[in-house]
Amino acid sequence: MVKYIIRRFLEMILTLFLIATATFFLLEAVPGDPLTQRADKLQPQSRERLYERYGLDKPVLERYLLTMEGLARGDFGESFVYAGQTVGGLIQSRLPVSARLGLQQMILGVGVGLLLGILAAMKRGTLIDYLVVGLSVLLISIPHLIFGLMLQKIFAGTLRILPTIGWPSGDELWFGGWKYTILPTLTGCFSYIAIYARLLKTSMLDVVNQDYVLTAESKGLSRGAVIRRHILRNSFIPVMTQLPMSVAMCITGSFFIESIFSIPGIGQYYVTAVNNQDLSIVMGETVLLSLLYIVVLFITDILYAVVDPRISMPGAGK
């Protein structure tokens, strides 16, 4: 087990290195020069100084090595467009915002989704089942984007009961200012509801027909106990594998949701940086978001191996 974890960990570092390298050279290929806009009106001398300050006077390979060294030290680079802004600083100010939004979405979405999934599986073939399945198809067919815009239009625009944009800050960063978070959270959570309801339902129906469920029932266990101790427990493995996908969804979802509701999180900043051609920020944030995703993949893999003994661990030996 330890050997497996170490191997996966080393693979993770290698993957991250490859991603950073690929991102660096991709951004190198972006047409134009990130400082053109700022340096355009400057004297030649100050222009040179500016290029020197950002290290853009050095050859590509040297800059690559410098960037990599910076990443290894945890320095993700400084903005080309806004002087003094660093990715590190942004993480401190913006990550909590996105993290709160993401957590609220997931807790609400996964919670409701799993409940609906259990309900649909237990009441298979009834109206409730059809309603849940229908609802999940409906929810899956409407993108974040449209949900967000419609909620904004209805609750903030027409009814005027919730704020259109904004996000709690200061003391209320993690707790409080709920009215600002309602619409963004709702926007994000629908897709989790749809996916988890469907997933848990199919997974539970698979398990219901297993022999051990029959055994448990014939032992005289109550229905509730069979569901809790045998069916649910075993149907959670496929659900768990969706964890990385959910985090990816949360990251990409944050791009849209934060743009629609003007939430000062990392997603909105990424989009702004892309539109401003702020290459160093894009580079830093790409590596950062990939790191987040890879860590989740890593944890899922290990959890998966821990929970399901049937999965053999390559490298663990017999």
Binding site: T23, L26, L27, I251, T252, V274, S290, L297
Partner: peptide
Amino acid sequence: IEVINSVPSLLVTILIMMVLG
């Protein structure tokens, strides 16, 4: 494939769009 899959796909899409316009 594993390396490509270990980046959220929208990020890759956005990077490519930046390069190609």
